[in-house]
Amino acid sequence: MPDPKDCRFAKTHEWVFLKDGVAVVGVSDHAQHEISDVVFVDVPKAGRKAAQGEAVAVVESVKAAFDIYAPVAGEVSEANPALAADPAIVNQSPMDKGWFFKLKDVDAAQVAGLMSFAEYEEFLKTAH
């Protein structure tokens, strides 16, 4: 499980954990709490290229669907297969088992340009 302090965060509430050139992406604990009970997650297929900020996934809680964005540009190398069978893991484990997809060919500078955990926490205070 990545420590939130080792992750970077987008204003659209996705987190990124960069390791060995691969960016693991999920939604923050704050996001899963607001979205509430997740009943479905549509993740992108491996091979899809995404621009930074492009809507690439959809999360549905009861009666509401939310766009999820690529926090950095890259190519999807893997999607979390566990989400199809058990979408509720997004609520139970947003920073670990509930990850959405992995991106390769990412620009480390783009990742560094996202918010740190401390900055994200501050952002949540001011954005509400």
């Binding site: 509430h13 704050h30 607001e34 979205i35 509430s36 009861v62 009666k63 509401a64 954005a127 509400h128």
Partner: peptide, 10 residues
């Protein structure tokens, strides 16, 4: 504008 509980929006 702000991500919030959809049941409240509904």
């Amino acid at each position: 504008p702000t991500l919030s509980d959809p049941s409240l929006v509904y």
